[in-house]
Write a protein that binds this DNA or RNA. Structure first.
Lengths: 149, 149
DNA sequence: GGTGTCGTAACGTTTACGGTTACGACAAGC
DNA sequence: GCTTGTCGTAACCGTAAACGTTACGACACC
């Protein structure tokens, strides 16, 4: 009966990591800023999609942009100081699992108690997930990327 | 360019655990089978949704059904022998994170190497997730449910 | 044979994201 | 100051998945 987010980041984390890593490498090669056009070409998508995504990352303090001519994007921190958890939180990814869409029968023992019981499991999993994401920085990702060449 | 599952089980795991736990408790109280109608009432959804879900669980060998008059659903194994991982696999939940929807520019260093780099992280996370889900059985869930009363 | 339930197809609704177009805002350079 | 290039955002469409509902055939007990 009620509405529900049902998000699921899915490919957004991949694209966000891709964009930031691209900017980082581009800057290390001596460029000031990267345009959404350039990033979109590497990601193989539309520049607007990149701008929307980077706007979220800017809100989280991971990236920043300059306007006007010679405009573009730059990192706010070094790649080594950005973990995948930072990126994950920046793109406001929803929880992996959700409870019922419409609340189950509260008169039923199972219907009444299953929500909290499952939530406890989900919270534990979510916490573990965050720990895993925090272990990897974009510097690690870039190292893997360059190693694969 | 290509199509993609983009599944994300979301509430399906919750509902599946709910249904199985309900059947288990109902059987312990002396009943032979549970109808999709009864389960749907507890879950607060449509019986067809329950039947579709239980059909997946039957394929995985977790539940079984009887037809004809006095028909309904029963467990194939005891609640203690069913983990959340079993349920998760039974409902064919997709991966948490996905790679790019359309393949990135292979001419670009980042575009070429980012996929495998992220996949390695995702595989590790997926593996940890499975370990977490395997730790909890439906018997554990039922215990929590009854404790909450 | 009647009855109750499963089995399943078909269809509509909802939600979210990605893709695209469009246009205003802005700042550097001439 | 005007031009130019890029960001900032709104608006809209298409797609994909799950849920909800209706409908009807299949089946087995009584």
């Amino acid at each position: 009966m009620e509405a529900r987010p049902e998000v699921s980041a899915n490919s957004r984390l991949t694209v966000a990591a891709h964009a930031l890593t691209w900017i980082g490498l581009y800057q290390r090669r001596g460029h000031e800023v990267a345009t959404s056009e350039q990033i979109a070409t590497s990601v193989n998508t539309n520049p607007v999609v990149i701008r929307r995504l980077l706007a979220d990352l800017r809100k989280a303090g991971l990236a920043d942009s300059r306007r006007g001519a010679g405009a573009g994007w730059m990192l706010s921190r070094d790649l080594a100081a950005i973990t995948l958890l930072d990126v994950h939180d920046a793109i406001a990814a929803g929880p992996i699992f959700a409870l019922h869409r419409s609340t189950p029968d509260p008169e039923c023992v199972v219907g009444h108690g299953i929500g909290p019981a499952m939530a406890a499991v989900y919270d534990q999993i979510e916490s573990t997930l965050r720990g895993e994401l925090a272990r990897t920085t974009l510097e690690d990702i870039l190292r893997d990327v360059l190693k694969a060449t």
